[in-house]
C-alpha cells in the first residue's frame, strides 16, 4: 500500500499451546490510519494473535513492534499507556458503574490524580476531573449514546453496551484500536451502524485492527485483509483480491488442497 512506516509490525511470530501450534510464522503490518480485517475460519488462530498483541500472553518466537518498539514483554495495562486499546468479544463493561464512569475509567492512563490528590482535591485535580467529564460526554456523543451518561452500564441493551465499550477504549486516546468480533450478537441494523462508527474512528486517524466473523462487514469497511487458516497466514491484500484468492476460498469452503 503506502510507504509509510507501519504502526504495528508482526514478524515471524510463533505460538504453541502444549503440542498444538496455534500460530506459525505470522508476518504482517498495519499501516497508520487504516482498517485491517483479520479473518479466518474457526480455529485459525485469530484470537491467539489478538491476545498476543494485547499482551495477554507472550509469543514463543518472533517480534511484535508497535510504533518502532518491541512490545513482547509489556503488560496489558502498560500497552494502554503506549496507545493500544482493546474491546472484548463478549463485552466486558464495569457493570455496576454508570455509562459515564465507564468512560472515565477508560481515561485512567490519561489522568494523573492519586490518593492524596483525591483526598485533598487540589485545583489541578478538579480541573482534570472536569476535563475528563467533558471528554467523556464528547465520546458518548461520538458513539451515539448521548443522553445516557447516568444509566447503569449493565442495564443497557447489548448493542449499546458494545458501543459503550468502544467509547471506553477510545477514552484512552489510542493510536491503535483492537476490536475483537465487535459485530457478534448485533442485528443487521446495529452492525451497519457499527461499520459507520468504525469508519468514523479511522477518519479520526486511529488505526483499527478488526477480528471478525461477519464477512460482509469486514469486507465492506476494511482497507486491508489478512487471512489466517490453521495458524498460518494464507493470504493478504485488498478485500477484492482476497475474495478472489483460491486458497481463501478453499479454506472457507473446506475443499481442495488442504492436506499436507
Amino acid at each position: 500500500m503506502s510507504t509509510e512506516l507501519p504502526l504495528l509490525k508482526i514478524e515471524t511470530v510463533d505460538k504453541a499451546f502444549g503440542g498444538i501450534q496455534a500460530l506459525s510464522d505470522i508476518t504482517f503490518a498495519l499501516n497508520p490510519g487504516s482498517i485491517t480485517g483479520l479473518i479466518g475460519p474457526n480455529g485459525a488462530g485469530k484470537t491467539t494473535l489478538f491476545n498476543l498483541i494485547s499482551g495477554v500472553f507472550p509469543a514463543d518466537k518472533g517480534e511484535i513492534i508497535f510504533n518502532g518498539a518491541g512490545i513482547e514483554n509489556i503488560k496489558s495495562h502498560q500497552l494502554v499507556e503506549l496507545g493500544i486499546a482493546r474491546t472484548f468479544q463478549n463485552v466486558e463493561l464495569f457493570e455496576s458503574m454508570t455509562v459515564l464512569e465507564n468512560i472515565l475509567v477508560g481515561q485512567h492512563t490519561r489522568t494523573r490524580c492519586g490518593i492524596w490528590g483525591s483526598i485533598l482535591r487540589f485545583p489541578g485535580v478538579i480541573a482534570e476531573e472536569k476535563k475528563a467529564r467533558e471528554f467523556a460526554l464528547e465520546l458518548l456523543d461520538f458513539v451515539g449514546l448521548k443522553g445516557h451518561a447516568d444509566k447503569t452500564s449493565g442495564d443497557l441493551p447489548f448493542g449499546w453496551q458494545r458501543l459503550l465499550e468502544i467509547a471506553r477504549a477510545l477514552a484512552s486516546r489510542p493510536k491503535l484500536l483492537l476490536l475483537d468480533e465487535p459485530a457478534a450478537g448485533l442485528n443487521i441494523v446495529e452492525t451497519m451502524q457499527l461499520g459507520d462508527l468504525i469508519r468514523k474512528i479511522r477518519n479520526q486517524g486511529i488505526t483499527v485492527l478488526l477480528v471478525e466473523h461477519d464477512m460482509s462487514l469486514t469486507m465492506e469497511i476494511s482497507d486491508w485483509i489478512v487471512v489466517l487458516d490453521q495458524g498460518k497466514k494464507i493470504a493478504q491484500g485488498s478485500p477484492r483480491t482476497v475474495q478472489a484468492d483460491e486458497a481463501v476460498i478453499a479454506a472457507y469452503l473446506g475443499t481442495a488442497g488442504k492436506k499436507e
Partner: peptide, 8 residues
Amino acid sequence: NAAAAVGV
C-alpha cells in the same frame, strides 16, 4: 481483566 485492559 477489563480493568487491566483499560490501563489500570
